[in-house]
């Protein structure tokens, strides 16, 4: 099976989020960058599991970004990706990003394209669906399990109020979330090997965007906590009932 895993670079989960330039830009000062957890823990590892099951399979990584993403790509290769492609474009427009991914995916003739369920920076959860439509391929979103047997893929997908078991055929695009795979950590051999694995850089075919970020805002800070004594639980219920009017 030929598998393409879309990966992206995001701020570490412990990052304090701040904005600069009149709140028009994300403040990157002191930010540690990581591989998006959904891409790393679920999409990539699932791809590796499938590869281990079926000899002759390959796992390619694909990202859209400038050279500063390379360390993240190397990490993906260290965990087990065979090769990587970087589309040399810095954009926050999902439509454009997905269009570029789809062109590479289509040309590469992949059986399966995996993405994380969302990135933890823009939380848009759209790349998989956009790529699928650009490729005119079926799409299963928010998968928490996936098995493949002689080209029939069985997937567990989250829905509100439960889960669906879906049967699909290849080629297919799937977005991955918790449950898909067990997180793996790169070992020394992987890290050393990653340095010599191929990383191909391609230029975008266009740069037209449909959206533009105008500005950012931080959530309003809490005004302070009202403490209630542990032996006066009735007071908490009264506050929720009469003051917050929620119960």
């Amino acid at each position: 099976m030929k598998i393409l895993v879309c990966i992206s670079k995001v701020p570490d989960t412990t990052s304090r989020i701040a904005f600069t330039n009149n709140n028009t830009q994300f403040d990157e000062t002191d930010i540690q960058w990581i591989l998006n957890p959904y891409d790393e823990w679920y999409a990539l590892v699932k791809a590796l599991e499938l590869k281990e099951q079926e000899s002759g399979s390959v796992v390619h990584l694909l990202t859209v970004g400038t050279a500063d993403v390379d360390p993240i790509i190397r990490k993906g290769l260290a965990i087990g990706g065979d090769e990587a492609i970087r589309i040399n474009l810095n954009s926050a427009d999902s439509y454009l990003i997905a269009q570029q991914i789809a062109q590479v995916a289509q040309a590469g003739g992949y059986d399966l394209v995996l993405t994380g369920k969302e990135t933890i920076d823009y939380n848009s959860s759209v790349i998989g669906g956009l790529v699928a439509e650009f490729m005119n391929a079926p799409y299963v979103s928010l998968a928490s399990k996936l098995t493949s047997q002689s080209n029939v893929v069985s997937i567990e997908r989250e829905i509100e109020g439960g889960e669906e078991i879906i049967e699909a055929s290849l080629p297919l695009v799937v977005s991955c979330q918790k449950g898909m795979a067990e997180q793996r950590i790169a070992n020394m051999k992987g890290i050393m090997g990653a340095r010599s694995k191929p990383l191909k850089v391609v230029e975008p075919t266009n740069t037209n965007t449909q959206t533009k970020i105008v500005r950012f805002e931080l959530p309003p800070a809490k005004t302070g906590v009202k403490m209630v004594a542990a032996d006066n639980v009735a007071e908490l219920v009264r506050l929720l009932h009469e003051e917050a009017k929620i119960i």
């Binding site: 990052s15 989020i17 823009y122 939380n123 970020i213 105008v214 500005r215 950012f216 931080l218 959530p219």
Partner: peptide, 9 residues
Amino acid sequence: VFSGKGFAF
């Protein structure tokens, strides 16, 4: 955006 740590317009 940023998983609830911010908003974007």
